[in-house]
Computed example of a mutant assay.
Amino acid sequence: MWMSDIHSLGGYTFAAGLFALGLGAWQVFLALVAGIIIVFFLMNFSGYAGQKTGVPYPVLARVSFGTFGANLPALLRALVAIAWYGIQTWLASRAVIVIALKIWPDLQGLTENNFLGESTLGWLAFLLMWALQLLLLRNGMETIRKFQDWAGPAVWAVMGLLVVYILINAGWNISLDLPGGKAEWGVTHAFFAAVALTVTYFSTLMLNFCDFSRFA
């Protein structure tokens, strides 16, 4: 669960985006720690309810919203999932484009046009990622579980290699003293905004955690 939520293109993009708020490396690190501590306590509240009742979120929501009213948060959760699916697919297509251009430089010509905000290569990469995920989903949840069994460790292995690569290129010297850019509303505002964004990023896990803790 943590693997798929944190080690994703969305997670990397989010973390990198915190620097755009005008924060330095230490400030981003502290904002992430503060946000994750808040998430820890909120997830325990949700998880405790799931553990005690043994029911998933859509059923647990009936306590607050009623049997019919619980359809509303369930529907909202589904809409967010659809949007997030599109975001992740688009971000993954960016990686496909980079790899494709690295292997086949002649494809550069397919990036020079524009249709609905995307180039031909962009659409091809997006549809490729969409089709691969659809193929996986069509085979059912058991196939997804088996895929995650090897994909999860593979992500860790690749991330480990990437860390070593970065350290080598940085001369084994990673500094947290990197200055931030200009914070439009001040550093304090930017810091608390980063904390709030961290909590928001993990809101899906907080909402769904009882789906997992009910098996504890």
Rank of each mutant, 00 (worst) to 15 (best):
residue 58 P to K: 14
residue 71 N to F: 13
residue 145 R to P: 00
residue 102 K to C: 11
residue 91 L to H: 05
residue 158 V to K: 00
residue 161 L to H: 00
residue 49 A to Y: 10
residue 120 T to W: 04
residue 167 L to T: 04
residue 50 G to F: 03
residue 5 D to F: 05
residue 138 R to E: 02
residue 122 G to A: 03
residue 58 P to G: 04
residue 111 T to R: 05
residue 85 Y to C: 08
residue 114 N to L: 06
residue 52 K to I: 15
residue 89 T to P: 02
residue 42 L to T: 15
residue 167 L to V: 07
residue 139 N to V: 06
residue 2 W to L: 08
residue 102 K to P: 03
residue 114 N to A: 01
residue 192 F to M: 10
residue 196 A to P: 03
residue 212 F to E: 08
residue 122 G to T: 00
residue 195 V to D: 01
residue 136 L to F: 08
residue 215 F to K: 04
residue 126 F to T: 07
residue 105 P to E: 12
residue 104 W to H: 09
residue 187 V to A: 07
residue 186 G to I: 10
residue 21 L to C: 09
residue 116 L to T: 07
residue 45 F to Q: 11
residue 146 K to P: 01
residue 97 I to E: 15
residue 153 P to Q: 06
residue 165 Y to F: 12
residue 76 L to E: 04
residue 97 I to A: 14
residue 91 L to T: 08
residue 178 L to C: 03
residue 199 V to Y: 10
residue 168 I to S: 00
residue 100 A to H: 02
residue 48 Y to W: 13
residue 123 W to V: 04
residue 124 L to R: 03
residue 205 L to T: 11
residue 72 L to H: 02
residue 13 T to K: 05
residue 199 V to N: 07
residue 129 M to W: 09
residue 157 A to C: 10
residue 20 A to K: 11
residue 161 L to G: 05
residue 16 A to Y: 06
residue 49 A to I: 15
residue 130 W to G: 02
residue 209 F to Y: 05
residue 216 A to G: 10
residue 187 V to G: 04
residue 186 G to K: 06
residue 207 L to G: 01
residue 181 G to C: 15
residue 71 N to Q: 05
residue 170 A to W: 12
residue 215 F to L: 13
residue 91 L to V: 13
residue 169 N to A: 12
residue 142 E to G: 02
residue 17 G to S: 12
residue 109 G to P: 02
residue 188 T to C: 12
residue 141 M to A: 13
residue 151 A to C: 09
residue 9 L to I: 12
residue 151 A to K: 04
residue 204 T to Y: 07
residue 121 L to Q: 03
residue 9 L to F: 07
residue 37 I to H: 05
residue 83 A to T: 14
residue 24 G to C: 08
residue 138 R to H: 14
residue 202 F to A: 03
residue 75 L to G: 01
residue 36 I to D: 01
residue 23 L to T: 00
residue 69 G to H: 09
residue 174 I to V: 14
residue 167 L to D: 02
residue 81 A to N: 11
residue 117 G to I: 07
residue 111 T to E: 06
residue 48 Y to A: 14
residue 85 Y to D: 07
residue 85 Y to E: 12
residue 74 A to R: 14
residue 203 S to P: 05
residue 46 S to F: 09
residue 139 N to P: 03
residue 211 D to A: 06
residue 194 A to D: 00
residue 185 W to A: 13
residue 4 S to K: 11
residue 69 G to I: 04
residue 174 I to M: 14
residue 163 V to P: 02
residue 119 S to L: 04
residue 68 F to H: 08
residue 108 Q to S: 08
residue 51 Q to T: 07
residue 126 F to S: 04
residue 110 L to E: 01
residue 48 Y to V: 10
residue 45 F to E: 13
residue 147 F to A: 15
residue 96 V to E: 01
residue 43 M to A: 15
residue 134 L to E: 06
residue 194 A to Y: 01
residue 16 A to F: 06
residue 182 K to N: 15
residue 214 R to M: 05
residue 195 V to Y: 00
residue 124 L to E: 06
residue 65 F to G: 00
residue 209 F to L: 02
residue 11 G to S: 02
residue 93 S to W: 07
residue 80 V to W: 07
residue 28 V to K: 01
residue 25 A to P: 01
residue 160 G to H: 01
residue 137 L to V: 11
residue 63 V to T: 13
residue 181 G to W: 08
residue 38 I to A: 05
residue 188 T to R: 08
residue 117 G to N: 03
residue 30 L to I: 13
residue 16 A to N: 05
residue 116 L to A: 11
residue 60 L to T: 11
residue 67 T to I: 14
residue 182 K to G: 12
residue 183 A to I: 09
residue 79 L to R: 13
